[in-house]
């Protein structure tokens, strides 16, 4: 059995990949990849107080979530969401861990509530005024595969569109040494269980036995893919950008997620 969904909108943000439209030519192989630093936008949908507290992972996740939802035409308040990240906000966790080594052990209340893995999904529901379910999950380096399967299955079982947001950022030292993550990368997809005239790709998701993951042809993109769990999405995004019909494999737990992709 497989889950079938249609991709209605995509947004991404990564080094040299400032948005989906600009990235398409690069991902399709029509334009050379040129790395560039990532600028994390300020999430304008949040109140000024919440905006000031917005930590890097929240800024990244909200930037791609807002982009994809805007392009999809759906009301942001209506969409259930799945947030996939390998861990919680690194800057926040690092600050809490450092504070706990001091004699006072004073943890900032804001740092503490930002330290939860679901900080981005919580801020998204605030930003979007959305009371639909939001999940925050991890499968370590396979977090994108886990999020895609969870979102796809949720869309199919619920019969309504679901927002998937995958994002990961590098941790500060000394955490970086024990959990190296490359340049920050975020991607959001709106998945619809029904084919509409907005559909850009048809996805069939199923579990498969472990096998080598699909890689990126371009060396620069391949380096991003290997460096960041959210960037494991790149081979799928490249197939969508090239309007290719393909079978993409992502490492997932002790198995693989097989994605049959076809253009619409």
């Amino acid at each position: 059995m497989s889950a079938r969904v249609w991709v209605e909108a995509i947004e991404l943000l990564g080094p040299g990949l400032p948005d989906w439209e600009a990235a398409c030519a690069v991902l399709a192989g029509n334009q050379p990849y040129a790395p560039a630093p990532v600028e994390l936008p300020v999430p304008l949908r949040l109140s000024p107080a919440e905006r000031r507290r917005a930590i890097p992972s929240v800024r990244l996740a909200l930037a791609v979530a807002e982009g994809a939802v805007a392009k999809s035409g759906h009301d942001p308040a209506s969409l259930p969401a799945v947030f996939a990240a390998s861990g919680a906000d690194g800057e926040t966790i690092g600050a809490v861990l450092a504070a706990l080594t001091l004699p006072s052990r004073e943890v900032s209340p804001t740092r503490f509530h930002n330290s939860v893995h679901n900080a981005a999904s919580g801020y998204w529901s605030l930003a979007a005024g959305c009371r639909a379910p939001a999940a925050s999950l991890s499968a370590y380096d396979a977090s994108f595969a886990a999020g895609l399967l969870e979102a796809g299955v949720q869309a199919m079982c619920g019969g309504f569109p679901v927002l998937l947001v995958a994002y990961d950022l590098p941790y500060p030292e000394p955490l970086h040494a024990v959990r190296p993550i490359g340049a920050c990368f975020g991607v959001a997809l709106v998945l619809n269980p029904a084919r509409t005239d907005r559909a850009i790709a048809d996805l069939r998701l199923d579990m498969a036995s472990a096998r080598p993951a699909t890689s990126c042809a371009d060396a620069g993109l391949e380096q991003i893919r290997r460096g960041n769990p959210a960037a494991r999405a790149l081979p799928l995004l490249a197939a969508i950008a090239a309007r290719a019909t393909a079978a993409i494999h992502l490492d997932f737990a002790a198995a693989a997620l097989e994605i049959g992709v076809a253009p619409c």
């Binding site: 390998s86 861990g87 893995h117 679901n118 999950l137 370590y140 886990a146 959990r179 737990a253």
Partner: peptide, 27 residues
């Protein structure tokens, strides 16, 4: 240890399971 996914990674390996595995961390 610290990784959010660690407990599912551990349980899956204890039983030698090869289905989907993930950890929900919604507080």
């Amino acid at each position: 240890t610290q990784s959010t996914f660690s407990v599912a990674d551990y349980v899956m390996r204890v039983f030698g399971l090869s289905g989907p595995a993930l950890v929900v961390s919604s507080a």
